[in-house]
Design a protein around this nucleic acid. Structure first.
Lengths: 173, 173
DNA sequence: TTGACGCCCATATGGCCCCATGGTATCCCA
DNA sequence: TGGGATACCATGGGGCCATATGGGCGTCAA
């Protein structure tokens, strides 16, 4: 199992070296193992961000177009609800959005050691079984099955490369 | 029966992880089983919200465009009635709305263990037979037949994805 | 009488709290 | 500069308790 996990060495254990002045954003990634009781540690610096914001739990949402969960502090929910408030309350869009963020969302409670239990809610949408990849995304972070993350990562890089080449020369970013 | 139920693994057992400070909203979903006496447990955190509001009864309405019930504490009626009050009392809309919420609704009583009995009123409109899916919707929650919920959920996600793709690029959330 | 319903209790599963351990990075001092 | 001490973190497991679920029993009404 060890050997298997080191296949993802590239995204393992990078969480330690996050500079302090960037603590307000979810950055970097790590892969942690699910224990026999179905729990997994949330990377420490992710937890630190949550603690700094004053939260001891997480709000998780199934990503629309990827086998991943978008996870953040519960105030994410406020942002979504504010967005819904701009829609016609009797329209289809508002109803769909509410269904999505309330019904397709879930709170994940951190235990005393900073772990969450990997529920069926998580496993079903992500395909996670033994290991969990945590990926910082700035305002939130994502939860992936490591292999799928790797595939997704390769696809993203390919798209970006294509974008860069399609661009007129001289632009650095 | 177990195997059958695990077909809905994705929406089962998500009820526990609702933190105290966000108790005011109905969030997440769970599938519970109807027992031989026709009863089903309302998820504990849903009950907690109701208890916090001081209600031991539920009011259920047939959703207009879905095989689901909209359920909430009886003060849901206040909201609808306020909505009706904005209509012309001699108009057709006000009459229809009043008929809908007053005549087409039903009270559901919670027993001592937080269960409701699944009446014909519920079964007819939802197609529920053995299992009940509870879906948080913020101010209220919904009751679905699990398979139909899954279909509806897929449709909602498809619509939202289309909405997202139609949006100008660059928006992460 | 029978069936629906309210109220009671039993139980197992799983969520959550607690503490232990081993490994690794960081720091500090010789 | 090197090596030991230390702090931190992921991981493992014990045990309590809330919850969902099953079932018994008495009451009331059809």
């Amino acid at each position: 199992m060890r050997e298997f996990r080191w296949a993802y060495a590239g995204i393992r254990r990078r969480s330690r070296s996050v500079p302090k002045n960037r603590m307000e954003r979810f950055l970097s990634s790590a892969v942690n193992r699910i224990d026999t009781k179905g729990r997994v540690s949330v990377p420490a610096h992710f937890r630190a961000i949550l603690a700094k914001r004053g939260f001891s739990e997480l709000y998780a949402l199934r990503a629309l177009d990827a086998p991943a969960l978008d996870v953040g502090s519960p105030d994410l929910l406020d942002r979504y609800e504010a967005r819904i408030a701009t829609e016609d309350p009797f329209g289809q869009a508002a109803d769909d959005m509410s269904f999505f963020i309330h019904g397709d969302g879930s709170f994940l409670k951190l235990d005393g050691d900073g772990r969450i239990t990997v529920t069926d809610f998580i496993r079903e949408h992500t395909g996670i079984s033994a290991d969990v990849a945590f990926v910082g995304r700035g305002r939130f972070f994502q939860i992936w099955e490591p292999k799928r993350l790797e595939a997704h990562s390769a696809a993203v890089r390919a798209r970006l490369l294509q974008l860069k080449r399609a661009r007129p020369a001289g632009e650095t970013e």
